[in-house]
Simulated assay, not measured.
Amino acid sequence: MKRQKLTTLTLGALVGALVLFLASCSEEEFNPSLTREFSIQSTFNGATYKIKVGLPLDYNSSGIKHSSIYVLDGEENFDFVANHCEEISDRYSVTNVVVVGIGYGNDRELDYTPTKISPTTGGGGDFLRFLENELVPRIEQEFSVDTTRNSRAILGHSYGGLFGACALAVNNQLFGNYILLSPSIWFDNEVSLLLEKEYRERNRDKPQLVFLGIGQSENLGRMQAPFEAFFQTLRDNYSSISLSKNREDDLDHMGSKNPNIIKGLTYYFKNR
């Protein structure tokens, strides 16, 4: 009898936890009526990407050409980013943006890294060409968005943050705003810092908005030192930059992601 009662209580707890989990998932999902979806195959790497587009509540109501945020790791981050863009823009009474979530086509390690140090790395150049020549033009043709560099932002975490840092260096005319969270600047002996230095002269006087976020508990040598070096390079060499960094106390690589997304978006909406 005691075992049966314990089993019943355990089952009840599991059911309760499942209900709470499903409720949280429902709350996290961005409004389906404001979400558009399509797939696009890249001619540069042959991969097919599932794209989600989150529209503002006032989309098309006043002829506004909205700014756009391109979100890497779209399967994981689209709903969270789109919901908080709506919340933060409303809080500060500023125009919301069109959020473009980019799903996985190739392995993220391949698409988001700039150099080939293994069979699964080094596809960042092709992925960047896909964005510039295929995805961004389609978004700007099919949706009511501004087509200027300063209206476009990219948001990425970890390897996605590395990709954004490399895009800032090698193709600075594509995005004017960068939200880079726990960027893997350490990759391939900090090759992204070398790319930044190589292209610095043509980028340093352009207006940039850059938010850098990391967790205080992330690996001190591998993550923190390159992160700080990247921040100081931008601070010391870019004359027209709007730059901010944040360390989330006592949080690690994954734990700091969502808090830094919120702070990065807040910085973006207040300073763009």
Rank of each mutant, 00 (worst) to 15 (best):
Y112T: 01
I241A: 00
L162Q: 06
D250G: 06
E196V: 07
K2S: 15
P119N: 08
H84D: 15
G264V: 06
V97Q: 08
S62Y: 08
V94E: 07
D252R: 10
R129G: 00
L193V: 02
S33Y: 05
S67V: 01
A23W: 02
Q141K: 06
L234C: 04
I51P: 12
N246P: 06
T147P: 02
I88K: 14
E109W: 08
S62F: 05
K52N: 15
K263H: 15
S93D: 14
N260L: 07
D126H: 01
M223L: 09
F130N: 03
H84Y: 15
D107K: 04
V53W: 06
K50T: 09
R247H: 06
K197H: 06
S33K: 12
A17P: 00
N150E: 15
E198H: 11
K65A: 13
R222M: 14
N106Q: 05
F227R: 09
I179L: 15
G264H: 08
Q173R: 13
F187D: 06
G125A: 10
K206D: 12
N260I: 11
E87C: 01
V191Y: 08
N258W: 10
F269V: 08
R149Y: 09
E76W: 04
D188I: 01
Y238R: 02
S151Y: 08
S24F: 02
R272V: 07
F130Y: 15
F21I: 01
H253K: 09
T148K: 11
S61I: 08
P207L: 04
N237Q: 07
V98A: 03
F80C: 12
K50V: 03
D107R: 09
